[in-house]
Design a protein around this nucleic acid. Structure first.
Lengths: 345, 345
DNA sequence: CATAAAAACTAAAACGTTTTAGCTAAATAA
DNA sequence: TTATTTAGCTAAAACGTTTTAGTTTTTATG
């Protein structure tokens, strides 16, 4: 007993004009197509009166535009991604687009499945936080002339728009901050994956190690961690075997969380003496004890820049405009965890 | 220079059969429609060879099904919601549906706009975490025979499917746990809003207060908090004026966060002596000091149940099957913040 | 050998738009 | 008056499917 929605045809019939005329008026082409003011007004009034809304599906089918964007992240339940999603949502809606979010779990197979899936649905554009091995898939999207912007990480040999941060510099600032606060031997905990963001962070660390002349102590957890449990075990071993480190830079939010758990449970005294910095802020880091110093990515700015690039692509579908790599600056949110020991209560 | 996608018509032409035949075969109706095995095989083989994928828009236009669901939450960047979203995502994809997420900011106007927006797009179903005043809009969706399931909260006089927790019981368990651990005077911090989930939590608190004979101390923050700053100020005042409370149940994640900030900054000694429980867990609560006891909602179970109800509605669009109110059980994740004082280190 | 029944397939309408190409009537020019 | 231009409007095709209501061919039946 589905009530049939009113269509443009019904309107045309009711007003004794043609479907074409109604369509022209609705699309704001009344002037251009020389529809008289009188008819234009009649149509507009009636449409408002019955609160007619065009069928988007039919529009999309005809025009080839779905007004849907896809935002593909590692895991939408991770704060860094969900926060970005929240911003994208607003930006897109303002322009009349909706955003479909999906999680690729940083897995190539899943990523490719998802891209294919949405591609079949003729979405109008992709914002992708790519897993390590989907360079070719991305390239094939480009070849089909489908707008794509990469976020957070990119591929060295792909000419494509990208927005992210200057990871190396961010890392350097973080480590330098530790050094400035009298920590002598900062270590670095990250994931062993060949992705630009992680490589940049690692390089930044190594640079300062060499500049400041301390021995680099790196822990790179396996890319395909089986469980949090396994992660914690590896971290515990690292702390056991490196009693001399006096500070740590965690390269992601998730690692920080694991690390803090291990410290809290197995090395409670260390938790209060270690210098700790994390990439990516989270509201709760300010209420930990000690509160955790964080390298903050400029989420709003990143989202805005990304959308800007994407909409440029959507507009000039033809011209493969020169691609742009945006590396934005981070800010250091300084909290208790990097106070030099003498300053701590 | 857009490459034209291959259509069913191209296939038909190439194989010298009719479009109808191809369509039947692709829809698995070969047997039913008596298409010969030979033709069926030829079509299937060719389709696989050229990797043809039907145009979903056209399918949707014709069938009236978009295979898109909407999940409307308060704020997708909030962990409770984004975690649910992550689960829904997988469940839906398994059934061939995509999920559009949107954030209503618990605001009626925004909620209604969003619902209208998606309704025009003929989505196949809604999962809604409703703001307080959209009862009528929800009802109108029902009247249009559009599948809707409410989550987290519901409306007393609306006959509609709903999934959530037993808020009253959860609250009672939390407070009882405080009492059992020798806290004499638990207080309750919540939001002043007429929504079932909040009312239930409040009622649970009051019940135990009356059973255990302690004076109820409630702080209900305004529904339309201007800023975190304002929230912190109100909380600080509450703590200042109620020095005698020895424990708190925070009714949401967000309030817990604000509360902990205030405690950490203004009442550091209290932070370690107060009994603290929060509704809704977050990975980081286990690494706070003290780690925070949490009332955990069974997210997986909630998501599954919700999908189950929604798909039932989608299937039997006609029969207004009897609606179901699912109130699931929570679990208490006991951590340091509710150890009785004698047990604390 | 006609006829009925079953098997195998298909033409065309429909979903709701947009847009091209053109038509008609009025106004203007010659 | 006739030809031309312009204003105002519209028929019909197209987007890519699904599905109804057939038609044609083959096989079985009396």
């Amino acid at each position: 007993m589905k009530k049939k929605r009113i269509s443009i045809k019904d309107i045309a019939k009711h007003l004794n004009v043609s479907v074409t005329t109604v369509s022209f008026v609705l699309n704001g082409k009344a002037k251009e197509k020389r529809i008289s003011e009188e008819v234009t007004k009649r149509i507009l009034d009636y449409v408002k009166k019955i609160n007619y809304k065009p069928n988007q599906l039919a529009q999309s089918l005809r025009t080839g535009e779905s007004k849907i964007l896809v935002f593909m992240v590692e895991d939408i339940s991770n704060y860094f991604f969900s926060k970005l999603a929240r911003i994208f949502e607003d930006l897109a809606y303002d322009k009349g687009y909706k955003v479909l979010f999906c999680s690729n779990e940083n897995d190539d197979k899943k990523s490719i499945e998802l891209i294919d899936l949405f591609n079949e649905r003729q979405v109008d554009g992709f914002i992708i936080i790519p897993s390590a091995g989907i360079e070719n898939k991305i390239k094939s999207l480009q070849e089909q002339n489908i707008p794509v912007v990469l976020l957070d990480r990119y591929f060295e040999d792909l000419e494509i728009d990208y927005v992210g941060i200057d990871n190396q510099k961010a890392s350097e600032q973080g480590i330098q901050h530790l050094i400035d606060n009298k920590f002598k031997s900062p270590s670095f905990v990250s994931i062993d994956v060949q992705q630009t963001q992680m490589l940049g962070r690692l390089e930044g660390y190594r640079n300062i190690a060499s500049n400041e002349n301390f021995e680099a102590k790196e822990l790179l957890l396996p890319y395909d961690l089986k469980s949090n449990e396994q992660g914690r075990a590896i971290l515990k071993e690292f702390f056991d075997q490196n009693q001399d480190i006096d500070s740590i830079l965690f390269a992601t939010n998730y690692l920080t969380q694991l690390g803090l758990e291990v410290l809290k449970n197995h090395f409670p005294e260390k938790l209060h003496n270690l210098g700790i910095i994390t990439f990516d802020d989270n509201a709760l880091f300010s209420i930990c004890t000690p509160s955790i110093t964080a390298i903050c990515q400029p989420l709003d700015q990143m989202a805005e820049k990304t959308m800007e690039l994407l909409f440029e692509l959507i507009k000039n579908k033809k011209s493969t405009s020169k691609y742009s790599h945006q590396k934005l600056d981070t800010t250091l949110e300084i909290r208790e965890s990097t106070l030099s020991l003498s300053e701590r209560s």
